[in-house]
Simulated assay, not measured.
Amino acid sequence: MSTRATDAADTRKAARERQMRRRRRRVAIGALIVVLLAALVLLVPRVILSTAAVDAAPAGPGVVVGGVYERAPVAQELPVPQLAVVAAAALCDEPAVQAALAARDDEAVVEAAGGGESFRAAVIAGAAPCISLSDPARRWVVVDKLRPLSPLDYEPANLGSLSQVTSLNGGHLRQDADAALSALGAGAAAAGVGDVAVLSSYRSYRTQVSTYAQHVDDEGQAVADAGSARPGYSEHQTGLALDMVACGRGCGGLDDFGATAQGQWVAQHAWEYGFIVRYEDGYMGVTGYESEPWHLRFIGPALAKAYHDGGFHTLEDFFGLPPAPDYAG
């Protein structure tokens, strides 16, 4: 390629990068404006002078008219400014966001929104009506004891066998999650911490029926609910979650994973590959589950980075959702 052609290509690339930076700034500014308007609505005080309190005062403020004391007129309640927070179409009106949603490219959606933190802020502020945290086909879906899958017997459309990391039970994952898992497994090996394998990955609604029933039979419902999801409430059913074990000469069990070199490396580095440890120790009051250092949930690199950088420990807190310590009924 000639020097002139190379310069032209570099110029076009730089122009595209400038355009993307401008788009991200517009989306971030739009989300910030909505957050500020919402905060202003909550902070504007109502100025109320109670008529009852004025009447009860023995010598309230007043004036003397013709030798007769008269109270000053009681101030009326001032009208509170009604600031209409527009359901910000700022993010959803972005052509790049619309195109990525239509293409079902979740990572591109987050990037077009300005990155994981801008995406999160827009969702929390109600500035992203085109984004549903209940859509089981999206990486950002939140499934917990108050947020069942819809439909309950949902089945992912793009499941595949694990391509690189060993599955001890012939498991399946969504293809994007499997690609990220392959990179994670290679990263663990390159770091010298040892091999990992998957004990459990996608589980269908029917499988979860029998899995949960077995836990109830063995442990009782209260104990089962602390460690196993009811059918239709399991992240495994999305194809985005897996249970990992450490392997050497053989493979260990789930309960051993957190204390292994692999488990400690995963806890520190899973976010770099788009995964989070979904159920951390000390957050059962939010997630409803005991600590499971082996349970990884794929949310994509951009969201996982925002999750890590923001110091979050639950998806509920990350997206501003209420705690889900128990089922509604």
Score class of each variant (00 low, 15 high):
residue 2 S to G: 15
residue 6 T to L: 14
residue 10 D to N: 15
residue 12 R to G: 11
residue 14 A to D: 10
residue 15 A to T: 08
residue 20 M to A: 15
residue 26 R to C: 11
residue 32 L to K: 01
residue 32 L to P: 01
residue 33 I to V: 13
residue 34 V to F: 00
residue 35 V to K: 13
residue 42 L to C: 08
residue 47 V to Y: 07
residue 48 I to K: 04
residue 48 I to F: 14
residue 52 A to M: 12
residue 54 V to Y: 11
residue 60 G to C: 13
residue 61 P to K: 12
residue 66 G to M: 15
residue 68 V to H: 13
residue 78 L to F: 14
residue 79 P to E: 09
residue 80 V to C: 11
residue 84 A to E: 14
residue 87 A to V: 12
residue 87 A to D: 14
residue 88 A to K: 05
residue 91 L to T: 04
residue 99 A to C: 08
residue 104 R to T: 10
residue 109 V to Y: 00
residue 111 E to S: 10
residue 117 E to K: 10
residue 118 S to C: 06
residue 122 A to N: 02
residue 125 A to F: 01
residue 127 A to N: 05
residue 128 A to W: 01
residue 132 S to L: 06
residue 133 L to Y: 00
residue 136 P to G: 08
residue 138 R to F: 12
residue 141 V to I: 09
residue 145 K to N: 00
residue 146 L to W: 12
residue 153 D to H: 11
residue 154 Y to W: 11
residue 154 Y to S: 10
residue 155 E to I: 13
residue 159 L to M: 13
residue 170 G to Q: 07
residue 170 G to H: 04
residue 174 R to F: 01
residue 174 R to L: 11
residue 178 D to N: 10
residue 180 A to M: 05
residue 181 L to A: 02
residue 186 A to S: 15
residue 187 G to L: 02
residue 187 G to K: 02
residue 190 A to G: 09
residue 191 A to I: 01
residue 191 A to H: 06
residue 192 G to S: 08
residue 221 Q to V: 15
residue 222 A to Y: 01
residue 224 A to Y: 00
residue 224 A to I: 01
residue 230 R to W: 02
residue 234 S to D: 06
residue 235 E to H: 09
residue 238 T to C: 05
residue 241 A to W: 00
residue 247 C to D: 03
residue 251 C to Y: 03
residue 256 D to R: 10
residue 263 G to R: 00
residue 265 W to T: 03
residue 266 V to N: 00
residue 267 A to S: 12
residue 268 Q to C: 03
residue 276 I to T: 06
residue 276 I to K: 03
residue 277 V to D: 07
residue 277 V to H: 04
residue 279 Y to Q: 04
residue 288 G to A: 07
residue 289 Y to V: 05
residue 291 S to A: 14
residue 292 E to D: 12
residue 294 W to T: 02
residue 295 H to A: 06
residue 295 H to D: 00
residue 296 L to Q: 02
residue 297 R to F: 12
residue 299 I to N: 00
residue 300 G to C: 01
residue 305 K to V: 10
residue 307 Y to S: 03
residue 310 G to S: 10
residue 310 G to H: 05
residue 312 F to A: 07
residue 313 H to T: 10
residue 324 A to Q: 01
